[in-house]
Design a binder for these strands. Structure first.
Lengths: 341, 341
DNA sequence: TCAGAAACTTTACGCGCGGAAATAAATTGA
DNA sequence: TCAATTTATTTCCGCGCGTAAAGTTTCTGA
């Protein structure tokens, strides 16, 4: 390869004996040129190994192939996994995904939006920080760029894809009530709408079963869920403030912290005899299977959420249609029975 | 803001009553224009809220402000955290970091390199996949782009920054030997040089203390360390194949799996009486403090590695000097005593 | 106050490519 | 075989900005 320097499309075109506009057409859509021409180009491509200048390409195209992905907290394996799934789908569809993380900070989310905007993206997939988000900035962004929101349903963009918290929470509440003492609810910090929705879903599910909801309240906006679960958990256990022997945590990361607290306080967790308490989570985080004991939880349908988000976005991009109403797609959770509850 | 449409620098310049070249100078370096001019520009900026077209900017600059970060596996919190630290430093220095993850796959690392190259980055910070990397592709990349390697010392690029595995492993081996039965070594899959270096360091440290090294061998190239630790661990415990009651794991993720295995097999882990085994890790992963029991480990100096990597890269970029010899910077680990060993 | 330096304006070119328009060549089908 | 159609070529312009060169204004300091 690289017989001589081929930097520009002009070079490459003359070197391969094809006109530049045709080469340009090829790079925009290989199917748009005749098969024989395509072969000649690809032959030359193998010899000279040329790639078009990304900046020159995107400067002139009305529509780039860039897709922005913004997640609130990349150190959370849920988002790492979602990002992975989404990236893959975008690449497969010939798009160029760029991943940003707000790292839990409002200003970084705003920065990411600005940076992303300067990429003139064809579309964006955003899991907002939530309460800490600059909603105005998000709205302005979504007004200019086709945007699909996932995970946390802020009223932004043309579509939302996420989990049906009512269904999933009811599922595990039912299970816990059916198999032992009804659960109290260890809520997550109210960082985003999921926190409130899950709390509400817990209350509704409990009342439907004729039980009294009992909530362990949590404040703040920290994303250090495990730490909070551990510290709060130790305090609550020490002060005997946990109202029931069964705790449903708002998410798995809280549960991981609480499991550690129980362990450190000498409480055995599980559903067998000799166990002092049951702990359940929500999300089926990648590590939920490695806790001690393994965590009973409700899984979110990662791949369905990722896939649907991307599909919705592609539809938005290709039709360009600002739909009259915001589309909301929710997926059901599934019970994942392990040893902790 | 946005009194009328200000899309181009030309628009903005005339709207703010300043010549375009001066405005251009300002955006390249605000300090390069007179204070009074700077104020006028920033005043206009507040009114019109204009940002230069990223593609047009980068097309003409010989040197972009882009910096690429490639990590092998973003779902690993070690890399998520490193990425966060590195991103922040780059942004603070006025660069534009873009994060790529190989997601454990060779082809995705190659793709990331290609994509990154098309961004004409000023430099790159790469934690290679390791054995699975396309070394030729990495070398070709590093030949064109100033590159600093971190975490996994493949012989690529102008500089490497990482941990001193000899020091850190010796530290924990010493501790374990001093406080109980000498450890056997549960190695990680040989995905990268760290795996071999840590094994060698373990052997050296044991021999120095007059002890016989005993290694639990592991094959494959999987990045699912926890899963491997769990499954292998359960098998080994069931078959009573663990040679000592103290296990030093090659990294914390293996240790997390092994802790789960011990729990599930009914073995109590810790250093007190009544404990069947001690388990130690390496890295001080973000979750090592939430395991049951909390994991005794050796910390890597995250912030020092991130900071130094970025510093080295900036030096490379600004001096442009291909140094005669490859610089290697290693940081010491610190013992983190928790309850597991 | 005035020369010299520093900063600014004006003018102009080019980066590498997308894409339009007019023309030429190759392919298709009857 | 020949027109009708498709595809390729030639030519050209423009995207938004970096940057150089030459001229003009503003600032600096003795």
């Amino acid at each position: 390869m690289a017989e001589r320097k081929v930097q520009t499309m002009e070079d490459f075109a003359s070197a391969s004996g094809i006109s530049r506009p045709t080469v340009s057409k090829y790079f925009n859509d290989p199917e748009s040129v005749r098969a024989t021409t395509r072969e000649r180009i690809e032959l030359a491509l193998a010899r000279f190994d040329y790639t078009p200048n990304l900046f020159a390409v995107n400067q002139n195209r009305k529509q780039t192939k860039n897709i922005g992905i913004i997640v609130p907290y990349l150190a959370d394996p849920f988002f790492a996994e979602m990002a992975r799934l989404i990236e893959r789908r975008c690449i497969d569809a010939g798009y160029w995904p760029t991943l940003f993380s707000a790292h839990g900070q409002r200003q970084m989310e705003v920065n990411a939006l600005e940076l992303l905007r300067s990429l003139k993206p064809a579309g964006a997939l955003i899991a907002p920080l939530g309460r800490r988000s600059d909603l105005e900035a998000l709205h302005k962004f979504a007004a200019d760029v086709p945007t699909v929101i996932f995970d946390s349903n802020q009223e932004i963009g043309e579509a939302f894809v996420g989990s049906d918290n009512s269904q999933s929470i009811a599922l595990i509440v039912d299970y816990l009530c059916r198999t032992g003492e009804p659960p109290c609810f260890f809520e997550m910090p109210p960082v985003n709408p999921n926190a409130n929705k899950r709390r509400a879903a817990y209350i509704a599910a409990m009342e439907k079963l004729g039980q009294t909801p009992q909530i362990i309240k949590v404040g703040g906006e920290s994303w250090d869920f495990e730490k909070m679960g551990l510290e709060e958990g130790k305090r609550l256990i020490a002060e005997r403030k946990i109202p029931t022997n069964t705790v449903l945590c708002s998410n798995d990361r809280i549960a991981i912290g609480l499991l550690a607290a129980a362990y450190q306080m000498g409480l055995r967790v599980g559903r067998g005899e000799g166990c002092a308490m049951r702990i359940a989570g929500h999300d089926d985080h990648p590590w939920a299977q490695f806790t001690c004991p393994p965590l009973t939880t409700v899984s979110q349908n990662y791949s369905a959420i990722a896939e649907t988000s991307v599909e919705k976005l592609f539809t938005l991009i290709t039709t360009g249609a600002k739909s009259e109403s915001r589309q909301v797609t929710l997926f059901d959770g599934k019970l994942v029975l392990r040893a902790s509850a």
